[in-house]
Design a protein around this nucleic acid. Structure first.
Lengths: 327, 327
DNA sequence: CCGTTGCGTTAGAGCGCTCCAAATCTTACG
DNA sequence: CGTAAGATTTGGAGCGCTCTAACGCAACGG
């Protein structure tokens, strides 16, 4: 910066003004500075800037797993909205691991991000709350209540109910749920499933799933081997559903003829007409967008009470669900 | 830091030593500092640290599109290896847009990242070269030659050849390629396709594709409407292939009976047995890993000549390819 | 009993930038 | 031509940390 100032024949302060395109710089000087900067390949050091400014205009986002297309779409919503407001978004990958997420939070905090956006976190409530004392924090796709922090969710319990009701309406009575294991929204979806089953007078049956295709296999194999295959499977997410589809096929079962399958998230995978997966839809882009809006209300408008936005899930009916054979 | 030092009854310098867990601090003082830091909720400011140290131990990665699972797997390879060497990885999403990528590069450079990892960049060679003057830069999944910078690729031309040869071996003579349009590796794959077709004595036919499912539709619809449907389609990537599968199905055509489809990347989408997509495989995890190794050779060992690592693609044969009807 | 050694500790400068108050230059006007 | 009001520009302190060189002190040998 010093060098640029000298070359342009001005003071360091003036260079700073130009780099932040302040309006109160004469055109002549501005141009001189810009030219000098260009000639020298000068690029402001963000660390120095952030240090001096005590602001970073940067938001920290942690996503559960870059693998899962659900999260990718939330990211697009977040980025688009953050950009509009002049914030950079730093992404750290949680990698489906609470410990890694904890380190990611720490990294973000040390980077002095102005807010934390946790998408489908695996962290404990305590960890989240602790982070929220340091910096505004919003949990997206939370599934359950996070006391004290902003949350953007779709009503997972209701989403699960939609899925079950759809299957019940088709005439299914034997519906198994493969859950999300330690995933944060797993509990709400299981609860919705169980309630809906009970209120339809049916007996719930829940198997342990996990995050993705691979985690579905064990559950479906178990169903096949114990000869307890239901007429319908409601999966924790689209990946599990896709895994179920694969494993069912490998077991020689037809979907939807032998077994109906319903997923959750309605990602592009469900949409692929080859998959044609009936799935509960979450408005991902909007969720990302609302996350930023919510956080900006804290940063810029100084809101302090936790916000709680609960969106309404819908059901996208496709080819993987049909009436059971016996009906 | 000042406050922590006071509370622990030591100097600021000592706090610094403790925070960087230097061995030359007495246990008593170390503990005192740690306790004070904990009580005060002290967290070192990374910007100040980076400024003083003139190192950031941070790598900047830009991925073409978080949507595409191919990139996600490269990310895992990069992260795992970077972590081993004590580097943080900052991810910025290119969003399939050269202009956004350019801004992302700028952001990373201002953040003083110690290296740049570009995964499937949409940037021009010039932009890439310019970045490489500032900081060690490696291009992953580059597809074509990038003079002056390190590249990690799989041989895309050969990959395309594998796909075509597989189809030719099955007896296909009418094979259309849906390309990657502006994608960086599109050219190499098209070239491989064309060469392989010619050397098999067949006439190449290339349609414009793009990045994902949506971009496949136009091409396939065109084939259907102009009554020029081939017996096999070789797609630029798995997403395009998946889109082709969908559109073919919508047109009432069976895969592989009426049309064989081959994808590229061999992501989990291809693996889903419902998709069962024959696809060219790239060793993604290894590519990420090698990217970091290569870059570390520059940072830590001071290599200066550009490295060029070209891996060998393989073909994963699945259910979407079969002999043509007429054969 | 004193000079040495070496460990543990510290003062203080400096990293590259922003921001404030104050200095300087322009312009307009009586 | 002098002056006040703006418009520009500048010096210097300060952001929170690391790093170097130097310092204090206990243990040790002669």
């Amino acid at each position: 910066m010093e060098t640029v100032a000298e070359r342009a024949g001005v003071s360091r302060a003036l260079v700073s003004l130009v780099m932040n395109n302040s309006p109160k710089v004469s055109d002549a000087k501005r141009e001189a500075v810009l030219r000098a900067a260009d000639e020298l390949g000068y690029r402001p050091n963000l660390h120095a800037r952030n240090l001096a400014q005590k602001r970073t205009e940067t938001l920290g986002m942690i996503i559960n797993d870059i693998h899962n297309p659900f999260f990718a779409e939330v990211v697009y919503g977040v980025e688009a909205t953050a950009e509009e407001h002049g914030f950079d978004v730093l992404i750290l990958n949680g990698g489906r691991d609470a410990e890694r997420e904890r380190r990611a939070v720490e990294t973000h905090l040390q980077f002095q991000v102005e807010a934390l956006i946790l998408v489908g976190p695996k962290l404990s409530d305590d960890d989240i709350l602790r982070a929220s004392y340091v910096v505004p924090t919003v949990v997206v796709a939370a599934g359950r209540d996070h006391p004290g922090v902003d949350t953007i969710t779709t009503d997972d319990e209701r989403g699960a109910t939609l899925a079950v009701q759809h299957l019940v309406d088709l005439g299914h009575t034997d519906i198994v749920h493969i859950d999300g294991d330690t995933n944060i929204s797993s509990h709400a979806r299981s609860r919705g499933y169980e309630k809906a089953m009970r209120s339809a007078g049916l007996e719930p049956r829940v198997l342990t799933g996990g995050d993705d295709e691979a985690d579905a296999e064990a559950a479906v194999v178990e169903l096949a081997e114990t000869d307890s295959m239901p007429t319908a499977i409601f999966a924790f997410n689209d990946l599990i559903a896709a895994g179920a589809l694969s494993t069912l096929e490998a077991a020689g079962l037809l979907v939807p003829d032998d077994v109906s399958v319903v997923g959750y998230d309605n990602t592009f995978i469900a949409e692929l007409s080859h998959m044609s997966l009936t799935a509960v839809n979450q408005p991902r882009h909007q969720m990302g967008q609302l996350a930023i809006r919510t956080i900006l209300e804290r940063i810029e408008d100084g809101r302090t009470e936790p916000a709680r936005i609960d969106l309404v899930p819908t059901l996208a009916v496709r080819g993987s669900s049909a009436p059971p054979r016996t009906a």
